[in-house]
Amino acid sequence: MNNKKFVPAAVLAGAVFAALMTPSANAVTQPEGPSAKVAAAPASAQDVERASLKCSSPSGAATNYSWGTGSSDSTTVYFNNHCSHKMDALLHFEAGGGQKTTRCMTTNGGTQGKKRFTVTRYHLKKITKGC
């Protein structure tokens, strides 16, 4: 014999809704309204740098780059080429002692992706046009 009680779906849904809408002791509430400000996310262990190089065509377009600045033996450069042509970029790496080296990165027009560069003890400082 079944000893379970039948609970109508509407009652069950109301109980679930009430439980979800009740703030718990661990809940973080945000202010409401047009002047509400959201707290900034905590700083990550790895900040992000960005660079942008203008295209020759179409007018106003650019190739955008970003990379992490954390300590590592490799750097992954993310790109989004909005140009209608290939774009050559010169990556400038620098070591703690002031030593410098460069690498060339070519991306096809209208593409996006990432490329990993292994340059031990060097950090990517900037990206300039051309190779």
Rank of each mutant, 00 (worst) to 15 (best):
V77E: 00
S74W: 07
A43I: 05
S24I: 10
T22C: 11
Q46E: 10
T106P: 00
K114V: 03
A95E: 00
T107W: 03
L20M: 15
A62R: 08
P31H: 09
T106M: 08
K129N: 05
T128C: 08
S74P: 00
F17T: 15
S57E: 08
S56A: 07
P58Y: 09
K129T: 05
A61P: 00
S35L: 11
G60A: 06
P8K: 02
S52L: 03
R103K: 15
G113T: 00
K114T: 02
M105N: 01
T107R: 04
S71E: 00
M87R: 04
H123E: 13
A39P: 09
Q46I: 14
F6I: 12
L20D: 03
V11N: 10
A9W: 05
T102P: 09
K114H: 09
S72Y: 06
N3S: 10
Y65R: 01
V16R: 11
S35R: 09
S74E: 02
E49G: 02
T106N: 04
G113C: 07
A36L: 07
K4N: 07
W67G: 12
N81T: 02
H85F: 13
K37E: 09
T69N: 14
A62L: 03
A40F: 03
N80M: 01
V48E: 14
A15L: 11
A62W: 00
S44N: 06
G70A: 13
K86G: 03
T120L: 12
F93P: 08
M21K: 13
E32C: 15
D47E: 10
K100R: 10
Y78H: 12
G96K: 12
T29K: 09
